[in-house]
Design a protein around this nucleic acid. Structure first.
Length: 816
RNA sequence: GCCGGAGUGGCGGAACAGGCAGACGCGCACGACUCAAAAUCGUGUUCCCUCGGGAGUGUGGGUUCGAUUCCCACCUUCGGCACCA
């Protein structure tokens, strides 16, 4: 017995991590002679613990980045921390520890955990959004957006979390009960002066995904979120001689409008309401406004409303129709006013039936019986021939929309219009732990930008934490006192900070040059590295971060700060790792899987391999603690297989030919799967090949040139998945450091070709036999071989087949 | 209600420009090694069966010589949106 080293990840993993780190192996620097690849994975929030979800997101991303590196790309794979945010403040209040201290302690701990992954992060490029050298530029971007009219301040009803004491963006309000994303408390409405970014200005462009390779799923979610509606604006006139604009997606039903409805907040309500109705209307509005959005927006709620006593004139037929107020019309969409066409809209129908308003049919779809407004049990929203519609009567359904719009436009009664569900992005937060909004309020000059040379507006460290929930910046005795940059007189700072999504909208740019002073990023770095080639992260950011960062990039493009239309060329999302009970992991359920424990027990390589293997990456799924044993055994076997003593090869030539064939076939498959992010079949392909290698070894293959080639290729293929063991085995075989600097092996197509193939013999589409034939067999010979099989003889009993179908290289189907 | 995924052995999953269903792994069973166990190695493992076969990829149809893969209609489930005019 010789002293063969045993596989001990606890020893080799830290050893190689230190060596790689010391050598700067993964440093990515501009090199115009090489094609670049910017691989980016979503940065974590420094909550304190790296959990298995981070590993699940990051290790395959790392493996892919490593693969690209071996393929000859100059790969940058940076990491950082999205370090501002509410949890730090909650910790501050609960544990009487400063958010900064809490955050940076967590960062330090998580940086260590991240390093235990053995990922190829270039830590020189680390960016932390809570660093003044970072948020100085978050503030600069805000100023730029304001200068270009893309940031504005407005008094508006906002979603307010009474527990967090702050506003929330629409995206941060979740669920049927409209609760706070962070703490789960139902939100309330509050009127506040708030800062907004004009995301709506980019609504149309954000719908265009034609130049980026993003998952259909994300495209669908974003498209849905932006909510484009094609229709037209129609100008009604009230009897008080006011213009009342409405938006409709069905201008072809205009002749069927039998009433109008205004949102309770609509500015014309007061004026249009007749004196005798004002009491009832006033009462209704008060009650509507008191309701929460949850009550008001519940779809199953019975519609309610009141008649204002006012009338408007339908511009297409001059009819006088009553104007109502109802809370099913929202001030925040369209113009806050609608025409009611009960025959062809279900909401209007329910309203009309309840209040006895006329239901008039103006659309008659061809395939259903003639409609009668008085008796129809529900609305008919389908397109169809226009009827009772003046000179447009008879217009067929397929052109009714365009004809109606044309009719309105010719007469100046309306125009084609598009509406979006997307709202402007509310970025004000009444919190301390965020980037201060760089604005100064002067009694004389109003809201004034903090001049660039005064940036950053630093967060004061000496703040008091009172359990009022009020932002400590408001309570600070002196911080907000300053002077107006325009007139120099006493003025006050804005005490709100920015939504952290603002900071994370451009972190990929800060990675380019995290210490750069003159600008948010070094333009040379930008020109070389951008755009991000592959972006990976969770699907849950589809309608938040991933819309914000696209908006941000487009806005920056229009401000002349960046180039190109999109920040990230390719996006891939991973799924979620659930607990073993198939439920979402949570501390209270006690089903949390700790990556640190797993690494301690099995080593990082095993955890990496299992995370890539156990599920389709984009699907995720429940954790299985016994399943990881498969990865443990695989790596142990590989270790033993490649460290075992090698004598002289005793294998036959055919064994070695088969060995080469299997190796190159696996290489071809694994290369393909790396390209397409199919990580689970990368690992299964490696496992399968290791089974072939074991067999070949038993047949005496070790010691041959073919065996050496097999091991060499094998180690390179596993290097992106399990970087430590690959490096160690590479080293043990006396190969030059580092395996991670080796090129990806080339497939020898000839070696991968099969010599013999198994031709499947089907009779009437059912498999009846198989026959071994040379791979290059001709058509006739293949058919003959199939017809000569026992099964076919037995089946046909001398009869002639009706048809013989050959799928070259695969099968012969004999049809009787 | 609308939009988008997903339904394959006991389990995770593989195969789909239509062509051997169940690769790979977990689990399980049996065997080897061991005094014994663990570990390891080997063999088997979709179901039914009268051992000839038969059925089988959520359900029901269709196209085809041939369908897990394509088409139509459903069912279940997960995610998103939702009184959006």
């Amino acid at each position: 017995m010789t002293d063969l080293p045993i596989y001990n990840p606890a020893e080799i993993e830290p050893k190689w991590q230190r060596k790689w780190d010391g050598d700067g192996l993964y440093h990515a620097d501009i090199d115009p002679s090489m094609p670049k690849h910017y691989a980016l994975t979503m940065l974590p929030y420094p909550s304190g613990e790296l959990h298995i979800g981070h590993w699940y997101a990051m290790t395959p991303s790392d493996a892919r980045a490593r693969f690209m590196r071996m393929r000859g790309y100059n790969v940058m794979f940076p990491m950082g921390f999205d370090a501002f945010g509410l949890p730090a403040e909650n910790a501050a209040i609960r544990r009487r520890i400063h958010p900064k201290e809490w955050t940076y302690a967590n960062i330090q701990r998580m940086r260590g955990q991240l390093k235990s992954m053995g990922a190829m992060f270039d830590w020189r490029r680390e960016a932390i959004s809570a660093d003044p050298k970072y948020y100085r530029w978050s503030q600069w971007f805000f100023t730029q957006l304001r200068k270009h009219g893309l940031a504005y301040r407005k008094m508006s009803p906002v979603d307010w979390c009474p527990n967090c004491n702050t506003t929330l963006a629409r995206e941060q309000v979740w669920g049927d009960d409209r609760h706070c994303e962070r703490c789960g408390t139902p939100v309330i409405k509050k009127d506040l002066e708030q800062w907004f970014f004009r995301t709506t200005q980019y609504a149309e462009e954000l719908l265009d995904f034609s130049n980026i390779d993003w998952p259909e799923r994300v495209q669908a979610l974003q498209t849905n979120w932006i909510g484009r509606s094609n229709g037209s604006t129609v100008y009604f006139q009230t009897e008080t001689q006011d213009r009342l604009e409405i938006f409709t997606t069905r201008p072809d039903t205009l002749w069927g409008a039998t009433f109008m409805v205004l949102a309770p907040e609509h500015p014309l309500v007061e004026k249009i309401t007749s004196p005798e109705k004002s009491g009832v209307v006033e009462q209704y509005i008060q009650q509507a406004l008191r309701q929460t959005d949850i009550q008001r927006e519940a779809t199953d709620k019975e519609k309610s409303g009141v008649f204002t006593g006012g009338y408007a004139i339908n511009p297409v037929n001059g009819e006088r129709i009553p104007v109502w107020v109802a809370d099913y019309v929202l001030m925040t969409y369209g113009t806050g006013a609608i025409m009611g066409v009960p025959a062809h809209d279900q909401r209007d129908f329910e309203f009309a039936r309840k209040y006895g308003l006329e239901v008039r049919v103006v659309i008659q779809p061809e395939d259903i019986p003639t409609l009668d407004g008085a008796t129809m049990p529900e609305s008919v929203p389908a397109y169809g021939t226009m009827v009772n519609s003046g000179q447009l009567s008879g217009t067929p359904g397929d052109i009714a929309f365009e004809q109606a719009v044309a009719y309105l436009q010719e007469r100046g009664l309306g125009k084609a219009a598009v509406n979006y569900r997307l709202r402007d992005w509310l970025i004000s937060r009444q919190r301390y732990w965020g980037a201060p909004i760089p604005i100064i309020y002067c009694p004389e000059h109003g809201a004034v930008d903090v001049p660039d040379e005064q940036l950053p507006v630093l967060l004061p460290d000496d703040v008091e934490w009172l359990p009022t929930g009020e932002s400590p910046l408001k309570l600070h005795p002196t911080w907000k006192l300053t002077t107006c940059p325009v007139c120099g007189k006493a003025a006050e700072r804005e005490t709100d900070t920015m939504d952290t999504f603002m900071c994370s909208s451009w972190y990929h740019l800060r990675y380019l040059s995290p210490d750069y002073g003159p600008a948010p990023f070094d333009p040379n770095e930008y020109d070389y590295w951008m755009p991000v080639d592959t972006y990976t992260g969770g699907i849950e950011h589809a309608t938040m971060h991933l819309i914000y960062t696209r908006f941000f990039h487009k806005a920056c493009r229009d401000m002349g700060v960046v180039k190109g239309d999109e920040p990230m060329s390719q996006l891939r999302n991973q799924g979620i790792v659930l607990g073993e009970d198939s439920e979402k992991m949570s501390k209270s359920r006690g089903n949390v899987v700790s990556p640190d424990d797993l690494v301690g027990r099995y080593g990082a390589d095993t955890v990496r391999a299992y995370l890539m293997f156990f599920a389709r990456w984009d699907m995720g799924g429940p954790w299985n603690s016994s399943g990881i044993e498969g990865s443990v055994r695989w790596l142990r076997r590989i270790w033993n297989l490649f460290t075992d003593e090698v004598g002289k090869s005793t294998a036959e030539a055919s064994t070695l030919r088969v060995l080469r064939r299997k190796v190159h076939q696996a290489l071809s498959q694994i290369t393909h799967d790396f390209e397409t992010f199919e990580f689970n079949t990368i690992v299964s392909g490696l496992m399968e090949l290791s089974n072939h290698l074991s067999r070949a070894r038993e047949l005496g293959a070790a010691g041959s040139a073919e065996w050496d080639e097999a091991v060499d290729i094998y180690l390179r293929m596993m290097a992106p998945v399990t970087p430590h063991i690959a490096e160690e085995l590479w080293d043990l075989r006396g190969k030059p450091y580092s395996i991670h600097n080796q090129p990806w092996p080339e497939v020898d197509q000839e070696a991968a070709l099969e010599e013999q193939i198994t031709l499947v013999v089907q009779i009437n589409g059912k498999v009846r036999d198989r026959v071994q034939v040379p791979a290059d067999i001709g058509e006739e010979a293949a058919k003959q071989a199939a017809l000569n099989t026992q099964a076919v003889h037995k089946y046909l009993e001398g009869r002639l087949p009706k048809k013989v179908i050959l799928v070259p290289g695969k099968l012969v189907n004999i049809v009787e």
